[in-house]
């Protein structure tokens, strides 16, 4: 029994500091939870990527990626998303330094770049569908429209979210809960950029290799 008590004492002394401090602040819990959600979202995208990889040659006599994809458009889309990720980071820094006008400015730039990306993607989709290469043409095109369209939907959701957040900053100010939501938005936007890196690599660059 004495031995048990001494072991207990030793164990208590070597406990890490963080576990004695009680629950972590809400900002950390919220961001960690959102990080888990983002990872699950990425797992969903990995299933779409796997479907695309399995169906990429199932063109059913229709056009293949080498005929359909335009690398110039993909390059401009990539530039738009990458720059918007950067301005989103600048927005997070402005939130930290509590400068509201800078938050509005960088949010507006992020929104504009995101909209430009969406417009280019929609123009590409519309061109493909009007050329008879819509999602019903072949399994390859179904997989393509599902994969790229799902990313586009995420970007659309991100733009809506950004608008809502700016309204909240305007009405509520940079309160703690608004700040947490902005942190989650920044995580979401950067994660979308990571998915796009894989998209343009797998679909637009590897997909058109001979």
């Amino acid at each position: 029994m004495n031995i048990a008590v001494t072991i207990d004492d030793v164990a208590r002394e070597t406990l890490p500091i963080a576990s004695e401090a009680g629950p972590a602040p809400k900002r950390i819990v919220v961001a960690y939870g959102f990080w888990i959600f983002l990872l699950s979202d990425i797992v969903m995208f990995s299933a779409l990527f796997a479907a695309y990889a399995a169906l990429v040659h199932a063109t059913a006599g229709g056009p293949s990626g080498a005929v359909l994809f335009n690398q110039g458009t993909a390059a401009i889309e990539t530039a738009c998303l990458l720059l918007s990720s950067y301005t989103c980071g600048m927005m997070s820094l402005s939130v930290n330094s509590r400068s509201r006008s800078a938050v509005y400015f960088f949010a507006a730039v992020t929104f504009a770049l995101g909209t430009m990306f969406l417009a280019l993607e929609l123009r590409e989709f519309a061109g493909m569908i009007s050329d008879g290469a819509g999602p019903q043409r072949s399994a390859f095109l179904s997989a393509f429209f599902t994969l790229v369209g799902c990313h586009g939907l995420h970007v659309t959701a991100g733009l809506v979210w950004l608008t809502v957040m700016m309204a909240q900053v305007a009405v509520k100010g940079l309160r703690a809960n608004v700040e947490r939501r902005l942190l989650c938005f920044a995580l979401f936007w950067h994660a979308l950029d990571i998915i796009w890196v894989w998209l343009f690599t797998v679909v637009y660059l590897i997909g058109v290799q001979p």
């Binding site: 500091i17 963080a18 401090a21 972590a24 900002r27 950390i28 961001a31 942190l183 995580l187």
Partner: peptide, 13 residues
């Protein structure tokens, strides 16, 4: 060892 060290939120510097 008076400072309380928490984990860092993802996205936070």
């Amino acid at each position: 060892m008076t400072d309380i060290r928490f984990d860092r939120a993802p996205g936070d510097r």
